[in-house]
Amino acid sequence: MNTLSLPRIAYGVLVALLLVFLLAPVLLVFPISFSADNFIAWPPSGWSPRWYVALARESELLLAFRNSVVLGLVVTVLSLAIALPAAVMLVRKEFPGRDILFSVFTAPLLLPSIVLGLAILIVFVGRGLVGSWFGMVLAHLTLTLPYALRVLATGLKTLPPAVEDAAGTLGARPFTVFRRVTLPLMAPALIAAGALSFLVSFDEVVISLFIVGPQLKVLPVSLYHYVESRTDPLVASASAVLILVTLLLVIVVERAVGLRKAVGGGG
């Protein structure tokens, strides 16, 4: 370690401040979730797990949580099932308009979700899709597909060169090549695309807000409504649970591929 110069110290302080700025609200959730108070206050006057107990009894939130998990899983599976063949075509086949098509397919990434949500609402309203599972899945797919497509396309492009050709010359038919060589080598990209799709769907508030109905509640929207009407620390304990679940998923992805490689890179 070399001596600490002034610029180095200044840089360190800046990074530390930025981290505090980004993470403080998130970290604050944990102590507040153990508050014994009846409303959110800092610092809490006493400590208690009572809001976790309350959370476990809040049947409406639990139902919304279950709905969100089911929705996330369905959307993830569909995203991968649709995005994988699409990525194979867009990366492997040469055809006119390919690059434009890829841009169009990934464009929703750039649209503000309020615009997307409104557009979806306008389309759905006349067709009875609002408040339905089918409508919710469709709406979430518009968000998750661009992510999945992008991650899988990057994965395909970064496959080691000529391995599929090599498998072909060794006697493997195209489908066997895909199953024995392409798919195993795509595993990290598939895990990353899946995790990302799930998180995006699980976390989505704005678009869900347009689609939810009395029969179909999802967690982010229910939490939002809860905060609107109540001020007790129950949302903090719910948030703490969510943060831990998300962290777990991120760790899985990081282990499988390295987060940076999975999300960014290539293009």
Binding site: P160, P161, A162, V163, D165, T169, L185
Partner: peptide, 12 residues
């Protein structure tokens, strides 16, 4: 039998 420039071994 084909031997490729970049070897093209199956890494997995």
């Amino acid at each position: 039998g084909v031997v490729f420039q970049a070897y093209a071994l199956f890494p997995h």
